[in-house]
């Protein structure tokens, strides 16, 4: 498939936004059960939510560049019964609303206790909103992943690993950002978020490698014989029905030389996993702001490469009709 930059930015940016939101709520949950100290609602939670919201909004903005008719985008909410894309269109604004509400409640300190357990653990309004928002964040990851995993013709994508990768890669970048953000706003939580970032990054390395291994062994279900229905081992295409290119030759091929394709793969394998892990490891001691910010930046750039590769690797059966492209 042709990797569209709008979609690469959309999926990576909202992944960071969702991951950061999950990190904030994780922090608050741990604080509620008194494992980590509670942070300042404004400098940590409200501004953290704002950063998350900005990433989500930037992703939304990027998505509009993908559409031929962005002015009609509202129509895309109508087919949620059947279309994962439609579901994403509904859940993304919900996610933004959740991040907005979570930040706003923290900012104004509207945080009444709404339930207390017999052991004395209390559930405050912001935490309840945060937990509800976390469900939305996971739902959004599932929608984004299923948009790709649901197309059975793209065998590289049609696997639960696609959804798992979206969750783990988005989560990893969000928690890495949370670690960097904490270096400025809540230094005592750097180890907490950094530790989670390391764990999720390692898990993501595992699942992404698993999908690479799976895809390397994939047997295409269709071939030229079934595509045109002629049973012969030697079929050569002589004409594609268009002298110049067509939508079919532009949309479904990445067009990069094999060397670039391979280079992007190794780039993301290095930039998403080992380098940020090393930077996180080094930066967690003494909450080094520069190192932690670099960990996030490197990982994000790596994720751009990862997403490019994700699209480029998918081989659409329609390409069988365009042997010369």
């Amino acid at each position: 498939m042709h990797p569209a930059f709008s979609v690469i930015f959309l999926t990576t940016l909202i992944g960071v936004g969702q991951g950061l939101f999950l990190a904030l709520v994780t922090g608050q949950t741990y604080a509620a059960v008194k494992i980590v100290p509670m942070q300042d609602p404004v400098t940590f939670f409200a501004w953290g939510s704002l950063v998350s919201l900005l990433f989500l909004a930037a992703g939304l903005l990027a998505s509009f560049f993908h559409l031929g008719h962005p002015e009609r985008a509202w129509r895309a909410a109508s087919q949620w019964r059947t279309s994962w894309l439609s579901r994403e269109v509904i859940v993304l604004p919900l996610m933004m609303a959740a991040a907005f509400a979570y930040g706003l409640l923290h900012y104004f300190g509207i945080d009444p206790v709404i339930w207390t357990s017999p052991e004395g653990t209390s559930l405050s309004l912001t935490l309840a909103v945060g937990l509800a928002g976390s469900v939305v964040a996971f739902a959004l990851f599932v929608c984004t992943g299923m948009i790709y995993a649901a197309i059975r013709f793209l065998q590289e994508w049609a696997t639960p690993l696609t959804v798992i990768n979206y969750i783990l890669l988005g989560g990893a970048s969000g928690f890495t950002l949370a670690a960097a953000f904490a270096a400025w706003t809540a230094p005592e939580l750097v180890r907490f978020f950094g530790g989670w970032a390391v764990i999720i990054t390692v898990l993501a390395a595992g699942s992404r490698t698993a999908s690479l291994v799976r895809n390397a062994r994939l047997k295409p279900k269709s071939n030229l014989q079934t595509a045109i229905g002629v049973r012969h081992t030697r079929i050569v295409q002589k004409a594609q029905g268009a002298m110049g290119g067509s939508f079919n030759t532009r949309e479904f091929f990445h067009g990069a030389p094999q060397a670039v394709f391979q280079a992007v793969k190794w780039t993301f394998l290095v930039l998403v996993f080992p380098v940020p892990l090393a930077l996180l490891w080094a930066g967690m001691d003494g909450a080094d702001r520069g190192l932690l910010a670099a960990a996030f930046a490197v990982q994000y750039v790596g994720l751009l490469a990862e997403r490019w590769f994700f699209f480029a690797q998918a081989n659409h059966p329609q390409n069988l009709y365009y042997q010369a492209a």
């Binding site: 008719h69 894309l85 013709f153 939508f247 329609q318 390409n319």
Partner: peptide
């Protein structure tokens, strides 16, 4: 009149039968 030109349907057609019009963007 409803199509937003998201191209998702063209990905979901194994035959490459759909083409996005480069000017009308549908």
């Amino acid at each position: 009149d409803k199509c937003i030109g998201c191209k998702y349907c063209s990905w979901a057609c194994p035959y490459g039968a759909r083409e996005l019009d480069e000017h009308q963007k549908v």
